[in-house]
C-alpha cells in the first residue's frame, strides 16, 4: 500500500517536471508585442468584384528587428539589429471567405532571388498588386527586360526583390491555396521613417480567404546567412515567417 502511494506520487512528481519543461518550450508569445494582428472590416459590401465582406490588414517589413516602428511598437521583441523582420506581429487573423486587402510597407533593401519563380504574383485578385514607390527604377535582370516600379504590377525583376510574402495552407486545410507577392526592394530603410523622402515601397493587394484554418506564410527572398542565405533570420521562427488564422 505504501509503495502504491509512493509510485503514484513518484509518477506525479516526474510528470510535473515534464509538464514544467513543456511550459518552458511553449510557443505562447507569438514573437509579438501586440499579439495577433486582426484584420479590420470595412463598411463595403462588395469587394474583390463580388458581394462579400471586405477586410483590411496593414503591416510592414523592417530592416532592424530590434527597433520600433513609427507607432512606437516593437518590431520583434528580443530582435536582432542585423536581422530584418515582418512586424509588428507575425500572426494575423482574417475572416473566412472574405476579400482581404493587405497593405505591406517595405522598408528594407534587397537583391536577387534564389529562384526567379517568385518574381511574379500568384494568388491575388487578378494576379496583380499595386505599389506606391518613391524609389527610382533599379536596373533589372534578366537582361533585356524592363520593369516599371509604380502602379499595378504582376512581375518585378528577380534581382530587385526586398522580401516576398508567400503563403500556403497548413496540410489538409485548403490544399490549392497559394499566394505569393514579391515586394520590391527599397534601399536601406529606416524603421521609423514616415517621411515621403524615406526609401519605402507600399504594396497593396487583395485575395479571397479560404475556409477556416491556419495558413503559414514566409519570405522567399534569401535575406539570411549561410547556405542559400536561408540560415539565421530565415530559419528563426517569427521574423520572416508566421501564421494567418482564418476564422
Amino acid at each position: 500500500m505504501r509503495r502504491t502511494i509512493g509510485a503514484v506520487g513518484f509518477v506525479a512528481l516526474l510528470s510535473g517536471i515534464v509538464a514544467l519543461v513543456g511550459l518552458g518550450f511553449t510557443n505562447q508569445t507569438y514573437h509579438s508585442s501586440i499579439g495577433t494582428l486582426r484584420a479590420t472590416t470595412s463598411a463595403a459590401t462588395t469587394a474583390c468584384g463580388k458581394p462579400m465582406v471586405a477586410q483590411q490588414l496593414s503591416f510592414a517589413t523592417y530592416a532592424d528587428s530590434s527597433g520600433t516602428n513609427s507607432a512606437g511598437q516593437l518590431v520583434h521583441p528580443g530582435g536582432n539589429p542585423n536581422w530584418p523582420s515582418y512586424g509588428p506581429s507575425n500572426i494575423f487573423s482574417v475572416k473566412a471567405h472574405a476579400c482581404v486587402t493587405m497593405t505591406i510597407t517595405q522598408f528594407d533593401s534587397g537583391g536577387a532571388l534564389n529562384n526567379p519563380y517568385f518574381d511574379s504574383i500568384q494568388g491575388t485578385v487578378g494576379d496583380v498588386a499595386t505599389m506606391v514607390s518613391n524609389q527610382p527604377s533599379v536596373s533589372g535582370c534578366p537582361s533585356g527586360q524592363s520593369f516599371t516600379y509604380k502602379g499595378t504590377y504582376h512581375q518585378i525583376s528577380p534581382c530587385d526583390v526586398g522580401h516576398t510574402f508567400t503563403m500556403r495552407a497548413l496540410p489538409g486545410v485548403d490544399p490549392g491555396f497559394f499566394l505569393s507577392v514579391p515586394l520590391p526592394l527599397a534601399g536601406n530603410g529606416n524603421n521609423e521613417c514616415d517621411l515621403d523622402s524615406c526609401p519605402k515601397v507600399t504594396v497593396t493587394f487583395s485575395f479571397i480567404s479560404g475556409p477556416k484554418g491556419t495558413y503559414a506564410w514566409n519570405c522567399e527572398f534569401p535575406c539570411g546567412l549561410n547556405v542559400g542565405n536561408f540560415g539565421a533570420v530565415m530559419s528563426a521562427y517569427g521574423y520572416m515567417s508566421g501564421y494567418l488564422h482564418v476564422v
Partner: peptide, 13 residues
Amino acid sequence: AATSAKVALLAAR
C-alpha cells in the same frame, strides 16, 4: 517570353 526567360534563368542558377 517572360516565363521562358525565367525558366532559362533558373536553369542557369
